[in-house]
Design a protein around this nucleic acid. Structure first.
Length: 267
DNA sequence: CCCCCCCC
């Protein structure tokens, strides 16, 4: 089949070069939040958030985030409204998706932990389709991970991070009253271990705590997590937008899986 | 266009 120009697949790293590229179809370099691309990207779905409601003006609409990875990196995408409702249940980790006609905008590091400078906005004009006959991702650039010893010495708790580790221990649910809102809160602490046997506490709240389904020796990657500080002790916490991925396709998760018996012998 | 807060 003859390859049309518009079917050229752009690597995610290319998106970074938009602001320097005189020949792209980008029209507004000064307003990165509203560039309509005629480009096409393709990537493997690596993280899908749950769907949630947001209020824009007086209208309530669905929104969720997902991430795609290709050989060159990772990009986060956000889908809204009926588009979000239409595609959310179809997206599964491992699927290769191709996107046409998306917008890009500069990321906010408080919400975006992919390491990319830009992210994708999916709107009603965006085409998304699964591609089945294509090469698998050869990871040259992964997610940026925050090492557990760096969690302990964090200086900026307002940045979204990614962590990966082996579950060492799963705590029980603890329930108490919120002082500020008189709400009943539930939390669950889980201890993760890395390849150096450093550990880190990860705190799950409410539904994430109640619906917890992972067990010791599972390898989980958490995208878009936060850092919590209490009396000089730092831990990882989950946000509503954070995603837990068991046995992620990323190299570090695969590496930990290979070291599992050595790091945490089966009883 | 949306999320980041909940406790010791």
């Amino acid at each position: 089949m003859a390859k049309r120009k518009r079917d050229t697949i752009e690597e995610f790293a290319v998106i970074k070069r938009i602001r320097y590229d005189e020949n792209t179809k980008c029209v507004k370099l000064s307003n990165m939040s509203n560039i309509v691309q005629s480009w096409v990207v393709r990537g493997e779905v690596s993280s899908v958030s749950s769907i949630r409601l947001c209020t824009v003006g007086k209208v309530e609409k669905s929104v969720f985030n997902f991430e795609l990875r290709d050989d060159t990196g990772v990009i986060r995408a956000t889908a809204y409204g009926t588009t979000a409702d239409g595609i959310h249940d179809k997206l599964q980790n491992g699927m290769i998706m191709q996107l046409h006609n998306f917008k890009i905008k500069a990321i906010n590091p408080a919400f975006n932990s992919t390491g990319n400078e830009y992210e994708i906005e999916v709107d009603e004009r965006t085409f998304i389709r699964e591609v089945t006959d294509c090469p698998t991702v050869e990871e040259k650039k992964s997610l940026p991970y925050t090492e557990f010893h760096d969690v302990q010495s964090s200086t900026d708790t307002g940045i979204a991070i990614n962590v990966v580790g082996i579950i060492k221990r799963v705590g029980d649910i603890k329930e108490f009253q919120s002082k500020s809102s008189a709400k009943s809160l539930k939390k669950r602490d889980v201890i993760l271990m890395d390849e150096n046997k450093n550990t880190c506490v990860v705190t799950m709240w409410n539904d994430d705590a109640v619906d917890w389904k992972y067990v010791p020796r599972d390898i989980i990657t958490i995208t878009g997590a936060g850092i919590n500080e209490f009396c000089g002790f730092y831990s990882v916490k989950l946000y509503r937008t954070s995603v837990i991925i068991k046995d992620a396709a990323y190299a570090k998760s695969v590496m930990l899986k290979g070291l599992l018996d050595e790091l945490m012998p089966q009883l």
